[in-house]
Computed example of a mutant assay.
Amino acid sequence: MYTERFELPGFDIERFIRTVLAEDLGEGLPGGGRDVTSEAVIPADARFSGVMDSRDAIVVAGLPIAEAFFRFLDPEIEIERLVNEGDSVEAGTDLVRLTGNARAMLTAERSALNTVQHLSGIATMVRQYVTAMDNPDCTLLDTRKTLPGLRQLEKYATRMGGADNHRMGLWDAAMIKDNHVLVAGSVAEAVRRAVEAGVAEIICEVDRIDQIEPALDAGATRLLLDNMDPPTLREAVTIVAGRVPTEASGGITLDTIRDKAATGVDYVSVGRLTQSAPAADIGLDFTPL
Rank of each mutant, 00 (worst) to 15 (best):
E4M: 07
I17C: 07
V20N: 10
D24K: 00
P30C: 06
V59S: 02
G62R: 00
A68L: 07
F70H: 14
F70N: 01
D74E: 09
E78A: 15
E85H: 04
E85R: 13
S88F: 05
E90F: 15
A91M: 11
T93Q: 10
V96H: 08
V96W: 03
L98E: 06
N101R: 13
T115M: 05
L119Q: 02
L119D: 03
V126I: 04
D134S: 15
T146N: 10
L147Q: 12
L150I: 06
Q152L: 10
E154N: 10
T158A: 04
H166K: 13
G169C: 08
G169F: 06
W171I: 11
M175N: 05
V181K: 13
V183I: 11
V183T: 10
V187C: 08
R193H: 11
E196A: 15
D210T: 11
Q211A: 08
I212G: 02
E213I: 09
L216E: 12
R222K: 14
L223F: 11
L224K: 00
P231K: 07
V237H: 10
V244L: 08
E247H: 05
S249M: 05
I252Q: 01
L254N: 12
T263C: 14
G264W: 04
S276K: 13
P278I: 02
D281Y: 06
